[in-house]
Design a protein around this nucleic acid. Structure first.
Length: 872
RNA sequence: GCGGGCGUGAUGGAAUGGUAGACAUAUCGGACUUAAAAUCCGAAGGGCUUUGUCCCGUGUGGGUUCGAGUCCCACCGCCCGUACCA
């Protein structure tokens, strides 16, 4: 080989790793374990750069930990259930199962050339009956443990297709296929009682020290613990058997500013009124239009209907408040009813202005005490405000103080109760779809809802409609529901004919315990105690920030549920010891327009210097997440065949901090490849010198480094110090997820080796150290240069180098001298010089003497090893 | 709407509250070459009747500090999530 050939090198070393089986994880109590996991992929059929980045980061950690003596578990699997497979079946007529498994085979084939240190023997897909059967067993155990519930929930309903829609199938409030206006409709569904653990899930966030603070904060806000007042407004006249309306409020202190009581269109009272008042029915129908997302509800137009009913204000029986039905009040939160205080809530204010309801100030700003007009006054709860007519006699107090006083008063007088509520709702797991894990229960006319027996698991999805007749996926609705025979079964309790549940599970269920399954992927129980005890917890979990709330919260809940049901040890109630959230891979978008002015997008490979092959200039739109629709995608397969996996790995790590987005550029990829070629050439040149008979260098790296001591030759000393500093800084970079910084350090190191005039032996040591430092990122090239330079065995098995503290310590340090915070000079002083002497030296600098002009400095700040600031 | 994050040269970015722009890309200049590519060496935030350890400069405007890219407040822009996308 006369030049760097990634194709040759990578195939060779992947085979070597494979043959030696070094990535196979086996339980070994004598060694500390390390479990590194990247969020497993959805098998869309093609890997993309986001995958390359995600798995490369995990691989760096896995390989690094392996070289520091850990027994590493680094598995891979497929999050294989979900709608895209059914959508594909609808569009092209195939079968979701065939589509999914073909995609998995395709993606596995694309992923293996990346040279990831994965134990492929543990691979599974969540759509394997061996996996989802165990998931059904977990469901039954959770049902028995009281962690599962059945109740009503609102879904997106397409009135034309007569089917339930996912949020992403609702576009601008309309069904994606029918175009019909979507309605919110209630269905009876299965739930995991995650809200029963809300308090614990919230409190335990404090212990997750190695999670990003932002993720903990997002979960905290999502769970949303609040203390407020639950109280009743008595209806002036009873209606349909209702004599009062229970409300929950987190701002009971604003009770004197109430101007109406609002109830959700799904409130029992609203439904009762609807039954005999067509106008209420019409309003409720209108209010239920549109999608179910929080965003749609919150940003939609606020609509209200005056029921004509009134309630008495609890503190003044002569004060009557009107009862309105309002479309922005959620039945799921609190009691589904509120009192509106327009002066201190923008939504209520907009509502009151729209419908001409009064606006009463409860308190005023101390700074600017003017009445509310069209902007609600919503100060922080710890800001002192001036109270207007406060019923407990407060004058100046904070909102929080007033809240506490109000709750105490309500409890003492018996008209309300302080309660703690959570925003977190129970996890609805029912999906009216085919391609998911069947919920293993049976509906019996006599026994009701009965769990399937464990020995009958897995409840398998039918492949066809029997006798080889294919399922028609192009019809809207759930194929399980209309299957001719699949529903028929015997009741597990009484044995009489019964019907299976046709809902399947949310795919978030599949991804909420896969990490536990990896510890014993072939077991005939969900987990195996010894394996879970040894391998759990996940030491480092890596994935996208888009999973900050749902997936991670559901997994935390599941780990607890699996502990309660005996499937995970108590230490695993928090399953992920450390979390890292990486950014996306983005790319510029190239656009032209067709004759009608509509945008036409072009693939990066079709654009050269801003022009298409026919010379047309493209418009360049700034980088965005790679997506097929914008055609700003770079296929990792092409990059690997052009430059090799090491180049792709190097580039996705080098150009941006891991938690931020990285922009893929062709120039950057080429530069990465040039750099790797340069490293390869340097190793080759050194080896050629050996062949020409320069020095004894076929020694182990450790022996070589032991022999190399300071003080023999200044040029050697310099390179030796640089080598140890590189070890130190690259190690710190890898350990702190500062991969881009570690790589910048490697660049500096390589530049130093190349320029160095040190002896061949010292360069040899530096170069082999370089191979080790690069091995987590570019493992193939690292093996190659390690071998070229006579390293023993695989570099993947070589212990990570440790820096010699004597060699990374400098004797002198250059200190900048500031005058009034502006840099004006610098001095070079011994590292150990005491503060007083540094100060003295600084005051003798010419620029300082000049600036002082004979006067004494007001103050001199000396930060040892950092800076001197002279204040004049 | 709400919750969270990000914003630094032409570009990606570096910087425990302490020398802003490390490292790299693109660019320009030089060496090598008949020439080009590759490779190697070097320059480079902006400004200037003042070329000076000069002035300005980390989205915008304020503040805290001896000292702010970093901390605080307000605003602008973009990104993620918003419970049936995964």
């Amino acid at each position: 080989m006369s030049r760097y050939s990634a194709a040759e090198i990578e195939e060779k070393w992947q085979k070597a790793w494979n043959d030696s089986g070094i990535f196979k994880a086996e339980r070994d109590e004598s060694r500390p374990k390390y479990y590194v996991l990247e969020m497993f992929p959805y098998p869309s059929g093609r890997i993309h750069m986001g995958h390359v980045r995600n798995y490369t980061m995990g691989d760096v950690i896995a390989r690094y930990k392996s070289s520091t003596g850990h027994n590493v578990l680094h598995p891979m699997g497929w999050d294989a259930f979900g709608m895209p497979a059914e959508n594909a079946a609808m569009a092209t007529g195939g079968h979701p199962k065939d589509w999914t498994y073909a995609n998995i085979a395709e993606m596995r084939g694309q992923m293996k050339p990346l040279g990831l240190s994965i134990d492929w023997s543990r691979e599974f897909a969540t759509c394997d009956p061996e996996y989802y059967g165990q998931q059904q067993a977990l469901f039954l155990d959770m049902l028995e443990a009281g962690l599962v519930d059945r109740k009503n929930a609102v879904v997106n309903w397409d009135p034309v297709d007569m089917t339930v829609l996912a949020n992403e199938q609702v576009i601008d409030g309309k069904g994606w296929r029918s175009g019909a206006e979507v309605e919110r409709r209630e269905l009876t569904q299965w739930f995991f009682k995650i809200s029963s653990m809300a308090g614990e899930l919230l409190d335990a966030l404090d212990g997750l020290d190695n999670w990003p603070a932002k993720v903990r904060l997002m979960q905290e806000n999502w769970i949303g613990r609040s203390r407020g007042l639950q109280m009743a407004f008595d209806l002036t006249e009873a209606q349909d058997g209702f004599d009062k309306i229970e409300v929950y409020t987190t701002r009971p202190d604003t009770l004197m500013g109430a101007s109406f009581v609002g109830i959700s269109p799904n409130h029992p009272l609203a439904k009762a009124l609807e039954a005999h008042d067509p106008k209420v029915a019409a309003f409720n129908a209108e209010a239920r239009r549109g999608g179910t997302t929080e965003e749609a509800v919150e940003t939609g137009e606020k609509l209200g209907y005056d029921t004509g009913l009134t309630v008495d204000h609890p503190l003044d029986p002569n004060w009557k408040l009107p009862v309105w039905i309002a479309n922005f009040i959620l039945m799921d939160y609190g009691t589904g009813a509120i009192f509106g205080c327009p002066a201190h809530d923008q939504r209520d204010l907009d509502f009151c202005r729209k419908y001409g309801l009064p606006v009463v100030d409860t308190f005023l700003s101390l700074k600017d005490p003017k009445p509310v007009e069209n902007e609600a006054f919503v100060p922080a709860k710890d800001e002192k405000v001036k109270w207007v007519n406060h019923f407990a006699g407060l004058d100046e107090a904070t909102g929080q103080e007033a809240i506490d006083v109000t709750i105490d008063k309500a409890e003492a007088e018996g008209w309300g109760e302080g309660v703690t509520k959570f925003r977190l709702r129970d996890w609805g797991l029912s999906r009216q779809r085919y391609w998911g894990c069947p919920i293993p229960v049976v509906h019996c006319a006599d026994c009701g809802v009965v769990p399937e027996k464990k020995e009958n698991l897995p409840v398998q999805l039918p492949y066809d409609e029997g006798d080889g007749k294919p399922i028609d996926f192009s019809i809207p609705g759930n194929p399980l529901d209309r299957h001719p025979t699949w529903r028929d079964c015997a009741c597990p309790a009484c044995g009489k004919p019964a019907k299976r549940e046709t809902d399947t599970m949310d795919t978030f269920v599949d991804s909420s315990w896969y990490f536990a399954r990896f510890t014993a992927p072939r077991a005939t129980t969900p987990t195996v105690a010894e394996d879970a005890d040894y391998w759990m917890n996940v030491d480092q979990y890596i994935g996208g920030i888009e999973h900050a709330i749902l997936h991670l919260l559901y997994s935390r809940f599941f780990a607890r549920a699996m502990n309660v049901t005996g499937h995970l040890p108590t230490k695993s109630r928090e399953p992920f010891d450390a979390l890292f959230t990486q950014g996306m891979v983005t790319h510029e978008i190239y656009q032209t327009r067709d004759e009608k002015g509509r945008p036409v997008y072009h693939l990066p490979e079709d654009v050269t210097d801003g022009k298409l092959a026919d010379g047309t200039t493209v418009e360049i739109i700034p980088s965005a997440k790679m997506s097929k629709s914008k055609k700003n995608v770079v296929d990792p397969v092409n990059i690997i065949s052009q430059f090799g996996a090491d180049t792709a790995r190097w580039f996705v790590l080098s150009d941006s901090p891991p938690e931020r987005d990285v922009e893929w550029t062709a120039a950057g990829a080429e530069a990465a490849h040039k750099f790797l070629s340069r490293v390869w050439r340097m190793a080759r040149d050194l080896a050629d010198q050996r062949d020409a008979g320069v020095g004894e260098i076929d020694k182990s790296l450790q022996d070589l480094m032991d022999e190399l001591q300071l003080g023999q030759n200044p040029l050697d000393d310099e390179l030796l110090r640089t080598t140890h500093k590189a070890i130190d800084e690259v190690t710190k970079g890898v350990e702190s997820f500062g991969f881009n910084a570690a790589i910048a350090r490697i660049y500096t190191f390589v530049n130093a080796i190349q320029k160095s005039q040190a002896s061949a032996k010292t360069k040899w040591g530096a170069m082999r150290t370089l191979a080790q430092l690069m091995s987590p990122m570019t493992p193939h090239l690292a093996e190659e240069i390690w071998t070229i330079l006579g390293g023993e065995g695989l570099v993947a098995r070589a212990p990570w180098p440790t820096p010699d503290s004597a060699m990374i310590q400098d004797n002198t340090v250059t200190l900048p001298i500031q005058i009034n915070g502006k840099r004006r000079a610098e001095i070079s002083v011994p590292v150990e010089m005491p503060k007083a002497e540094v100060e003295k030296a600084a005051l003798e600098v010419e620029a300082v003497i000049k600036a002082l002009d004979g006067a004494a400095p007001k103050k001199v700040i000396v930060v040892p090893g950092r800076i001197v600031n002279v204040v004049i």
